[in-house]
Design a protein around this nucleic acid. Sequence first.
DNA 1: TCCCGTCCTGAATCCAAATTCAACAAGATT
DNA 2: AATCTTGTTGAATTTGGATTCAGGACGGGA
Lengths: 206, 206
Amino acid sequence: MPRTKAGGDRRSERRSDLLEAAQRAMAEHGAGVRLNQVAEEAGLTSGAILYHYPDLQDLLIDANRAGMERFYDERMKALDGVDDPAERLVITIRSGLPVDDDDEEVRLLCALGGEAARNTVYAVLLTSLFDRQVAMYQSILEMGRAQGAFTLANDSLSIARNLVALEDAYGYRIMAGHPSLDHGATAELILDYARLATTHPLAKES
Amino acid sequence: MPRTKAGGDRRSERRSDLLEAAQRAMAEHGAGVRLNQVAEEAGLTSGAILYHYPDLQDLLIDANRAGMERFYDERMKALDGVDDPAERLVITIRSGLPVDDDDEEVRLLCALGGEAARNTVYAVLLTSLFDRQVAMYQSILEMGRAQGAFTLANDSLSIARNLVALEDAYGYRIMAGHPSLDHGATAELILDYARLATTHPLAKES
DNA sequence: TCCCGTCCTGAATCCAAATTCAACAAGATT
DNA sequence: AATCTTGTTGAATTTGGATTCAGGACGGGA
C-alpha cells in the first residue's frame, strides 16, 4: 500500500480531504449538493470523487458523521482542565452556539437538521448527536449536584435535554441572522434557564 | 375577470391550489423540490405551473409564507374562548409541537429551517415567524403577571424566546423520530421550564 | 531502468428536468 | 352562433448534471 513520509496511507488521507470538501460543499449548497460542487470544493473533477466514493450519498453521510464528531470533540476539548461544574456549564453553553452567522460547522448541522425530517440516516445521526450532548450536560449537572454547587429543579435528564434544545434552536436563529439574537444574547438566554434549573448564580465572567 | 359561483375569481383559487400542492411537495422532497414534483402534486403538468408562476422560487416562497400563516393562525384559533393565562400557556405549548413525525406542516417548517441558513428570503420569513410566536407567548406571560397568576423569574421577552426556542428544537427532534421524545414528553419538558419561569404549577389536566 | 498499480482527467454519452410553444378545450362575451 | 379569453396539454428543444471510460501522469518496487 502506498504510504506518505509521515506513515499514513494515501487512500485514507485523500478520503479525509474529500470529507472536508464535502462538508464545505454541503454547508454552502445544502443537502441537495451536486457532485460537481463537491468536486470543485476538493479541487478535482467529478470522476475523481466517484473513484473514491461511487455513491455520493455515502460520501455525504461520512462527511456529516465526521462533522458531528468534530463538533462534539471540540466541545469536550473546551472543557479541558476546568474542574468547577459551574464553569464547565457556562463553557459548554457557549461552545454549543455558533460564533456568528458564518459558522460553517453549524451551517452543516442546520442543513442536516432540515433533511433529517425526511431522511432516516440523517435522523439517526442527529438523534445520536443530540443524546450525546444531553449526556454531556447531564454529567456536568450531576457533578454539580454531588459537590453541592447545584440544587436541581428537575431531574438532570430533563434539564440537560432542555439545555441542548435551547442551544439547537438558537443555533438556527443565529444562522438565520436574527437581528437581536447573537452569540452573546442567546448564551445569556440559555444561562437564564440554567440559573433557574440549578439555583446557581453562574456569573457572567467565569 | 372569470368568476366562480361562489364569487371568487378562478385565478386566485387556482393559485391557492398551487400553494397547497407546493407545500406538500416541499414537505415531501425538501427545499430542492422539482417543478415536476410540484406539478404532480397539483395534478397538472409542469407547463401549467409555469403559466401561473414563471419562477418556481416565487411559488415556493409564497407557499412557505402561506404555510407559516396557517400554522400561526391555527395556534391562535386554539386559544379561542380560553381566558385563564395558565390554560392559555399550556395550550400554546402543546399546539406548537408536531403531533407525530408525520406532521406535514412541521415537516415543511423543518425543511425551511435547514434552508434558512443559506437563503436570505427564507431566513427573513422564519425570523418573522419566530418573533411573532415570541410576541404571542409574551402577551400570555404579561397577562398572567397582571392577573397575579404568574411571578416571572425573568423579563417576559426572555422567557417567551426560550419557550419558542424549546418548541422549535423539540419539533425537530420529534420529526427526526427520537425514540423517547414524543409530543407528550416534549410538552412536559417545556412545561418544566414554564413552571420555573412563571412559578405557577401549570397542572397537567387543564 | 522498466514495469505496475494508483489516481486522475477530459471527452463522450446518457439522462432527467426545465423550458418553450403550437394547438386545443371550455367558459365567457358579444 | 361566432368569437375571445383563459388555462392547459403534449411534443420538441435545450440545459445541466451524472456516468462511463480510454488514456496518461506519477511514484514505488523490481
